Amino acid sequence: MFHHFAAVAAVSSVTASTGVLSQATGLTDSDLSNLKVSPNFSFFPFMDLVSNMVGGLWALSLIIAVAVWICAAIAWGAGRVIKSGPMQQYSGTVFIWCALATMVLGSAMAIVKFFATQALF
C-alpha cells in the first residue's frame, strides 16, 4: 500500500516538473480559463414549479418561526407572572432558537448568493 502512495507521489512530482500530464491530456491553462459553465434554471420545464415550491416553503417556514417566536415570548411572560422557573427557562430557550432561525431564514438568500459567487480556484 505504501508503495502505491510513493509511486503516485513520484509520478505527480515528475509531471509537475516536466508538464507531461498537460501534454498527455491535451488541455492547457487557456482551455480551462475559457470553460464557462453556469446554472441554467430554465432548461427543464418544471423549474418554475420547483422555484415556486421552494419559495413557498421558505415563506411558510419564516411565518411559522415568527409565530413560534411570538408564542415563546408570551409563554415566557406567563411564566414570569405565575413565577414558574422551568416555564421561563424552556420558553426562553425556544425564544432564542426561534430568533436565530428567523435571522437565518430571513437572510437565506443573501447567504446563498454570497457562497454561490465565491471563486473556488
Rank of each mutant, 00 (worst) to 15 (best):
M109I: 15
F41N: 07
V81S: 05
A16E: 11
S17T: 09
A24G: 01
S38Q: 14
S107H: 12
I63A: 13
F46S: 10
R80T: 12
A119W: 04
D48I: 09
S61M: 13
L62H: 04
D48M: 12
I64H: 03
A75W: 13
M87D: 01
V20N: 04
F41E: 07
G26R: 00
G19M: 02
K83W: 04
A75I: 11
I96W: 06
S22N: 11
G19W: 04
T28N: 07
A108H: 04
V37H: 03
I74W: 05
M1L: 06
K36M: 05
I74Y: 06
V14N: 11
M53D: 14
A73Y: 02
A9Q: 05
L35E: 00
L100H: 05
A10I: 04
Q23G: 07
L100Q: 04
V8L: 14
L100Y: 09
N40V: 12
L21T: 09
Q23S: 07
A67L: 13
A16K: 10
S38A: 10
M1I: 09
A24E: 01
M103Q: 11
G92I: 00
S91G: 01
V50G: 06
M1W: 06
K83Y: 05
V68T: 10
A101F: 10
F115Y: 05
P39R: 00
V112N: 09
W97P: 02
M87N: 03
I82N: 11
M103K: 07
K36F: 07
S91E: 03
Q88W: 04
M103V: 15
M87Q: 11
A72V: 08
C71L: 10
I70H: 07
L57A: 12
T15L: 06
V94G: 08
G106E: 08
L27S: 01
I70L: 10
G19F: 02
V81N: 05
W69H: 13
G85K: 09
A24M: 07
V104R: 05
K36L: 00
S51M: 14
A59T: 07
M53Q: 14
S30I: 08
I70D: 12
N40A: 11
V14E: 14
A99R: 03
I63R: 08
L100V: 10
V68M: 12
T102C: 14
A7R: 10
Q88H: 02
F114Y: 10
V20E: 07
F114E: 13
A72T: 06
A6C: 03
M87W: 01
F2K: 13
S38C: 06
V81P: 13
